[in-house]
């Protein structure tokens, strides 16, 4: 098997994983989505730029694995009013590229648009998303997901669905 074929195969697997993750988010399958995370995961939405230090500066989301669990349990509680009724959302994902590969870890970048319809109205979200995926016998797991909204330096409406 030639090198190009191996790379194409990896890109294809990565794309399928990202699409599957997006589907779970779009369909509010919170528990199945949570199962995609590695134990040392970080889920990060920076604010005021894409390269801030999240240990020193405010981020919109900066969840470790435990806090991802709280986020999911809150959504499942039946009293997360901002998602009751749930936003109708669809992720559109494009420009998927494998950026780096080291051992069992793959860095991936893509562009994302999300169309949201909620009680407030319709909102369009756009972001550069980067993943650190870990290849395991059970498939990829997300060790890190960074969603850099293009307007993260501006006032933003409530973003309470899983982006």
């Amino acid at each position: 098997m030639g090198m190009i074929t191996v790379e194409q195969d990896l890109t294809r697997r990565v794309e399928q994983f990202i699409y599957a993750e997006a589907r779970l988010q779009d369909e509010h399958e919170y528990a199945a989505w949570e199962a995609l995370w590695a134990d040392d995961a970080i889920y990060w939405l920076p604010a005021n730029g894409d390269d801030i230090d999240p240990e020193q500066q405010m981020s919109i989301i900066y969840d470790n694995r435990s806090r991802i669990g709280v986020r999911v349990r809150q959504l499942l509680s039946g009293k997360r009013y901002t998602q009751d009724p749930k936003s109708a959302i669809r992720h559109l994902i494009t420009n998927v590229e494998v950026l780096d590969q080291t051992g069992d870890e793959v860095s991936v970048g893509c562009n994302v648009m999300v169309y949201e319809s909620s009680l407030r109205g319709e909102t369009l979200w756009a972001a550069r998303t980067e993943y650190l995926l870990r290849d395991t016998p059970d498939g990829f797991r997300m060790a890190r997901k960074k969603v850099a909204l293009v307007n993260n330096d501006k006032p933003l409406f409530t973003l309470s669905f899983l982006i």
């Binding site: 604010a47 989301i61 969840d63 901002t82 009680l119």
Partner: peptide, 23 residues
């Protein structure tokens, strides 16, 4: 900082629900 990030802002555990009530 950690507690604030969890609680407030557009995706906060507390303020997203408060803001839903405002609207």
């Amino acid at each position: 900082r950690q507690q604030t990030m969890g609680s407030v802002g557009p995706a906060g555990f507390l303020l997203a629900d408060d803001s839903e009530m405002y609207e």
